[in-house]
């Protein structure tokens, strides 16, 4: 842990390393430890005011700040991209208040803070992924009373969630949830995976990296320890299907990555490109090299 006299934090005199004071970090780390001990269970914590508004990743930033060390390399993605406003400003924030190195490469990062995506490249044991979570309670739309949802979790009474999926199939012929698709963690807790596309759900299953989830406004932290089974809810005769646009990436040609649809003009022009900019960039370089050889 580095203190306020850290030369790398010049211009931020008076601030502790990684913005939060040590007592706060300790409180958050306790919540994280408890969350890791009970996979998928939401742990309340005393979320602090952060220098950005709720909904911009205050939960994720606090978790990152609590686990960040001077030797860490930080990657921040927003909707898969490294070059969007949220990603850039959070990266710059930690560069200023912690002086840590940042990267856009998934392979080089030791901590990845993310909003709405899991990188395409498989994560490793020595990496930690931190999700920004707007609504940690998967049952919130079905049961508005917090006390009641806590009771349902305590009793593992999750029939209600299946009723919701049943209704989707009865009305639309398929399960209509395309993001924030509910999962069972370790066969015990129903968990919201944060608004990642259902396409990314299978990546959570038995992931070698530690997965941490922070919800700032709702003041909850939860976690999935490495190699924990994570199963998307479904019916035997309507199995879970990851949804992907049926196209190839216009830039790198990938037919496996998750795609964004981008409007290119006001005359109906559109293109499909990888949402993971790092993955797409690496593939473009590889394709160019192959062509050169």
């Amino acid at each position: 842990m580095t203190g306020i006299d850290d030369p790398r934090a010049s211009g931020t005199e008076g601030y502790n390393f990684a913005y939060l004071d040590e007592a706060t970090k300790r409180m958050i780390r306790r919540a994280i430890l408890k969350a890791v001990a009970i996979p998928g269970h939401q742990i309340p914590f005393g979320a602090r005011e952060m220098p950005l508004p709720y909904g911009w990743g205050t939960g994720g930033i606090q978790v990152t700040a609590a686990i960040l060390g001077p030797a860490d390399v930080l990657k921040v993605i927003d909707q898969g991209a490294d070059d969007t406003t949220n990603a850039i400003s959070i990266r710059r924030f930690f560069t200023r208040v912690a002086g840590v190195a940042t990267t856009e490469s998934t392979a080089e990062a030791s901590i990845i803070q993310t909003r709405h995506r899991i990188p395409e490249k498989a994560l490793r044991e020595d990496q930690v992924i931190v999700y920004q979570v707007p609504q940690p309670e998967p049952l919130s739309k079905l049961e508005p009373r917090r006390a009641e949802t806590e009771r349902l979790h305590a009793l593992a009474d999750y029939g209600l969630m299946h009723v919701r999926l049943y209704e989707d199939i009865a009305r639309l012929g398929h399960i209509a949830k395309a993001y924030d698709y509910p999962v069972m963690v370790n066969g015990r807790y129903l968990m919201s995976p944060s608004p990642i596309p259902a396409f990314d759900n299978p990546k959570m299953d038995r992931m070698p990296a530690l997965q941490l989830f922070g919800a700032g406004r709702e003041k909850r932290i939860y976690a999935i320890p490495p190699y924990t089974p994570v199963r998307s809810l479904d019916f035997e005769d309507h199995p879970f299907r990851p949804i992907r646009a049926p196209h190839a990436c216009a830039l790198c040609g990938s037919t496996e990555s998750y795609l964004d649809e981008v409007l290119t003009d006001d005359a109906g022009g559109r293109m499909f490109v990888c949402s993971d900019t790092d993955y797409c960039g690496e593939r473009q370089v590889a394709v160019a090299q192959e062509a050169a050889e």
Binding site: D157, G159, H162, Y166, E167, R171, D234, F235, E236
Partner: peptide, 20 residues
């Protein structure tokens, strides 16, 4: 929730996972 969902809720609560 539809009539079918209402009837099915208890089945799903005790572990029925076959929509048909």
């Amino acid at each position: 929730v539809s009539a079918g969902g209402n009837v099915g809720e208890r089945l799903m609560a005790v572990g029925a996972r076959h929509y048909g």
